[in-house]
Structures are given as structure tokens and as C-alpha cells.
Computed example of a mutant assay.
Amino acid sequence: MRNTTFLRAGAVAAVASLALVACGSGDDDAAGGGGESKTLKLALNQTEQHPSFIALENFGKRLKESTGGRLSIQVYPNETLGAQQETLQLVSDGTVDLAIVSGTQLENLNKDFSVFNMPLAFTSVEGQMKVVNDPKTVGDLYSSLESSNKITVVGAFTQGTRNVYSKKGPVNTPADLKGQKIRVQESDLHTSMISAMGASATPMAFGEVYTALQAGVLDGAENNEVSYVTQKHFEVAKYYSRTNHLVGLDYLVVNSDLVKGFSAEDKAAFDKEWAAAWAEHTDLWGKETDKAVAAAEAAGAKFNDVDAAAFEAALEPLKAKFLTSDVQKKLYETAQAAG
């Protein structure tokens, strides 16, 4: 059972502790290329077994080596520093240096991010990664929050294909979701997405989902196979239906003042090691997805395919509702063309 009250209290204590450490460390010169070292604090809402944690841990090790110890990364998993909405604000404030946040969090700050959160925008992880880590395509988008929020988007990890899972039974068509309370990320787009798929959308922080499923507050949720297993949601919602409605995204965000203070040498090392991190993560994702499905099936979870055409038809109207500017339409066309 997930103790979310404990997590919130822990987040407050952890952030307070980090602030004290920052005040006493005297290591800020390292970010500008000085001789001292700086450990960057990175917030993550996943477990230590998740591909994101593994790739980020390795990112930090390589960065430390590449900069001769001037920069390193400590990853705080399991929402230790708070839920994503909280850690995004902490990065903006400069209390936390880096965080992994879902696309829906950035969509709430700039609607142009909603393009890559659109259902059916991407049809493959490979096409997705080609677009979202291409500076020529996303450069303006990723710098759009710097002046208003002091947040720079570094790049993105895939969340893989997201699907629906339920306590009540297999889902084959949108009609099977009628009346079911399905957890959704905190976003107007994703609330509309789940509603279009036939369910009652229930926005909720990620760390609260297990308990809500267990208590009957939720009937199901939508997520990828890896998170379904690492968060043990298969224990309380054993029917996993491959709606393939979305190839999700997580973004790495950094405090803009911090990254602008990097020396040219350290910035080059940071960018190089980040490119290696998302490539490693993508490779891990495929392998861990296969393992997750096998583990869930062994524990009694049931996987099924759905009427894909029925879900595509239900989701089609969202394009007209949410793609309203020329910038958004162009980004969407780029995503579609990537396959």
C-alpha cells in the first residue's frame, strides 16, 4: 500500500535538507567551470528498477567522468522530492536542479507542448525519439519557458505506448469503459482523451494510483507496461488492454540560470552525456517492456488487443479541439511524418 501522506512529509523534509546543504556547500563555482565540484539534484517519480532511474544514474556517472568531477548527479527516485507538479516548481525556484516530468506538466505552462501529448501523434518510439531530441525541430519549444519560469527543457525520454488497464475486465471498445473511473494525468487534453474513450476521467498524482485502485476510488488507469509492473498496479487491476492510444513522453528539465552558468566545456559534456542517456533509455525501454509483460502475465495479469479502429474514431475529434495554431499544426505534422 502506498503511503502518500508519508511521501509528502518526506518531500518537505528532503527539500529543506537540500536547501541547507546548498547553503553550506560552497560549490557553485563548479557550474561555471571552476575547480570545485557540484552535485546536481535530480527528482524522479519512478523506482530504482525503472529504465529512467538506470539511465539517469549512468548519465550522472559519465558526466562526472567527462567533467573531471566538476559536475555529477544524484537521482532522488520514488517521488522523494515530491510529485511532478511540485518538483517542476522546485526546479523553477532553483531548489532542485533537474527533474523528469511528464509532457502534461509542461503542457500546463505552454499549450504548444500538448502537440506531442496528442493521442496517436506518434506511432512508434523510434519516430518519437527522432523528433523530440532534434534541436532543429524543438529548439524554440524547449526554450519557451526560460523567461517566464526559469525552466529549460533538455530533451525527452519515451514513456512507451500507453494503454488502459482495469479491475473490471478486458476492454475491447470504448463502450466497455462507460462508467469506469480511469486515472489520468493532470491535463485538459488527457482528461478529454479519456472521456472520448468512454470513461470517467479522474485526474490524480502518479504516486496515489495504487492506493486508489486498491480502495475502489479508481476502476483503472492508463499507462505503459513498465510502469504497470514497477508500480505493481497489476496486483489491483489485472486486465491490461492494448488501446495504443498514446506514445507518452517524459522531459528532462533544468533550472535555466544553472545551465546558463555552465562553462562551454561543461555544457558540451552535459549535452553529449544526455544524448547517450536518452539513447540508453530507449534501448532499455524495449527490453524492459518485454520483461514487464512476462512478469505481469506470470502474476496473473491478462493482456488483450482491442478494436483499434473504434478507439481511433473516438479520438479523432481531439485534433480539431486542441491543435489550434499554425505552430501546433506544424509540430503535429512533423510528429506524424516521423512514423
Rank of each mutant, 00 (worst) to 15 (best):
D97S: 00
L63I: 09
D112C: 01
G94N: 14
A83Q: 07
D97C: 00
T87P: 03
A99F: 08
N45S: 07
Q84R: 13
L81I: 09
T80R: 12
E86F: 01
T80M: 15
T47K: 07
L88N: 13
D112S: 10
E65L: 00
E57P: 00
Q85N: 14
L71N: 01
E57F: 01
T80E: 13
L63A: 10
L44G: 00
V75R: 02
K111E: 15
V75F: 07
I73F: 05
E65A: 04
T47E: 13
I100L: 15
A99E: 02
K111Y: 12
I73D: 08
D97W: 01
E86P: 02
Q84C: 13
Q84I: 07
A55F: 04
Q89I: 15
S66T: 01
L106P: 11
L109P: 02
A55N: 06
E79G: 00
Q85L: 15
A43W: 03
E107S: 11
L56F: 05
V91N: 10
Q105H: 11
S92V: 15
N117T: 06
L44Q: 01
N110Q: 02
A55D: 10
N117D: 15
F59C: 05
S66Y: 03
P51D: 13
A55C: 08
T95M: 07
L88Y: 09
F116K: 04
F59Y: 14
S114Y: 07
P51M: 11
V96I: 12
Q85K: 13
N117F: 11
G60A: 09
V101F: 01
G60P: 10
D97A: 00
S66F: 01
D97M: 00
S114Q: 12
A99G: 04
L88T: 14
G103M: 01
I100C: 07
Q105P: 07
G82C: 12
N117I: 08
V91D: 12
E107I: 03
F59L: 13
T104P: 14
T80Q: 15
Q46R: 08
G82Y: 07
D112P: 04
G82D: 13
T87G: 05
D93R: 10
E65K: 00
L56Q: 03
G60Q: 06
S52E: 14
M118E: 11
G60K: 05
R70M: 03
L106T: 10
K61C: 03
L90Q: 15
G103N: 12
Q89S: 14
H50V: 14
F59G: 08
A43K: 01
H50K: 12
A55S: 12
R70Q: 10
Q105M: 14
S66M: 12
E65W: 00
T80Y: 11
V101S: 10
F113T: 03
Q105K: 08
A55K: 02
D112A: 06
F116P: 03
D97L: 00
T104S: 15
S92P: 15
S66C: 00
L44R: 00
E57V: 03
T95W: 04
A99W: 06
L106K: 05
N117A: 15
S72L: 07
I54H: 03
S72K: 01
Q105I: 11
V91F: 12
V96R: 00
G94A: 09
T104Y: 14
V91P: 12
K61L: 09
F116S: 11
E86Q: 03
Q49F: 13
G69K: 05
I73P: 04
Y76Q: 04
S102V: 10
E107F: 05
T47C: 09
N108P: 06
L71V: 02
A55M: 06
Q84L: 11
I73H: 04
N78S: 08
L71R: 00
